[in-house]
């Protein structure tokens, strides 16, 4: 069961900052599902997370302005 983080209403760079802080609370290999409604975050956050070694397991569009990014912690 993945940990969830709702970042609706949040914009860059805090989308990444908050995702990163949440990931720091998890164990290596654990999964985190983050919900965004800020379109640039869907490109920016996965790119920044990959730079830190985390794995993007999937990006799912849930609505016109709603995405869920699934991350596995490095």
């Amino acid at each position: 069961m993945a940990v969830e983080l709702d970042l609706k209403g949040e914009v860059c760079p805090y989308t990444f900052v908050k995702t990163k802080l949440k990931l720091e609370e998890l164990e290596s290999g654990e999964e985190l599902c983050v919900t965004f409604d800020h379109a640039p975050a869907v490109e920016n956050v996965p790119r920044s997370l990959k730079n830190e070694g985390h794995k993007i397991m999937g990006i799912e569009q849930k609505g016109e302005h709603l995405w869920i990014v699934r991350i596995r912690k490095a």
């Binding site: 760079p13 805090y14 990444f16 900052v17 908050k18 990163k20 802080l21 949440k22 720091e24 609370e25 920044s48 730079n51 830190e52």
Partner: peptide, 20 residues
Amino acid sequence: MLGGFNEEQIRRYSRHIILP
């Protein structure tokens, strides 16, 4: 609160937190 930081701290220290 996220990772022990309040909203103001997340914003204040964001450029540090972003650094790997």
